[in-house]
Nucleic acid binder design. Structure first.
Lengths: 186, 186
DNA sequence: GAAGATTGACTCTTCAATCTTA
DNA sequence: TAAGATTGAAGAGTCAATCTTC
């Protein structure tokens, strides 16, 4: 979470290490830490601006966008969770907060009594329509505009490569990831 | 925070938009969302594994690494905050939790009565020395090993480019960033 | 039993307010 | 007044347990 999910020389020679860890070389560190810092700093600015200008958190934004793009402005909860790659409990807590603020509403699902529909309200629609253009501009300003088409493609390539490796070995898969078929949200 | 800090078509034509937002094209979306997903999924696995195998959170890890690399195993609180790019209150809360668990200790600073030293304890050292090798292996396994030297360099290049733009316009700078001179931690 | 979903407890992060010393 | 640091409250995320329906 911070910028220092370190990988550096940590234990000099105090204790005998079982298998002599291979610490990261210059190139590896530059890539790894560069990515961490880039993500964290871009996101910090983006989120801060979003909440200041629109009163929406990242979570609010993600959910409202998903719902606003859905056919009738509603989705099943599990569909939302899959789409966002969120844990179901995270989604549930988030929806509770948003429902309290009148941005979404929960409705019963006729075809499956276990299920719930999540519906965007008028207030929710108003909020997302006001927030989205600014947010996109911020993404451009702090991220996209800095990069050339070649750099954008290189980054996509890196992401695709890493993500496909993660998909390959489903270790420690936090539940939502298993269902992900490669779709993207935005 | 989720994978959907959207930028997509949100408002079709309901209200007259002041300046017709430019939504992201294919290439832009691939890069932007690819980065978000890559970061989030890699981190999710890394953090989960770290806490399961070592009982340390990302925050614990970052602080213990920083302290273990410091001259006497201690740093001023504000130095730590600057290094990690953390807010001071976040650091303070984190230290409180870690002190409770015996991983670090706070000491008075002789030269500045306002200040505090943060010191790594024996338990802290033991914990980080046990955790680090595994963590580095995980970083390799889920991230570095998937990428070629060219891809690593391309990623570094992207990160450097974006970060230098952020440094350039200090908008919405969340306090810690201002002091960052380009040093890396880890 | 498994799937869809919620809840409670705990950890983590942020913001604003505060306190003390330089 | 500004710098170094802490605190409390509220929002956010994770995990394990639970409940209902398939």
């Amino acid at each position: 979470m911070d910028h220092v999910s370190s990988t550096h020389d940590v234990s000099p020679a105090t204790t005998a290490v079982p298998a002599a860890p291979r610490w990261l070389d210059e190139r590896e560190q530059a890539a790894w830490r560069g990515m961490l810092q880039m993500y964290q700093q871009v996101m910090a600015r983006l989120n801060r601006n979003l909440v200041v200008e629109s009163g929406l958190s990242e979570g609010d934004y993600a959910i409202l966008v998903s719902l606003s793009e859905a056919p009738e402005g509603h989705l099943r909860a599990f569909e939302l969770a899959r789409w966002l790659l969120w844990e179901k409990s995270r989604l549930s807590h988030q929806l509770t907060r948003m429902e309290r603020r009148g941005l979404v509403r929960r409705e019963e699902c006729p075809s499956d009594a276990r299920g719930a529909f999540v519906v965007i309200t008028e207030a929710g629609r108003t909020a997302i329509e006001a927030a989205a253009p600014r947010h996109v501009e911020d993404v451009r300003h702090w991220f996209l505009d800095a990069l050339s088409p070649q750099q954008l493609d290189a980054l996509s390539d890196v992401a695709t490569t890493v993500l496909s490796r993660l998909e390959a070995d489903g270790d420690g898969c936090p539940e939502a990831l298993a269902a992900c078929t490669g779709e993207e949200q935005d």
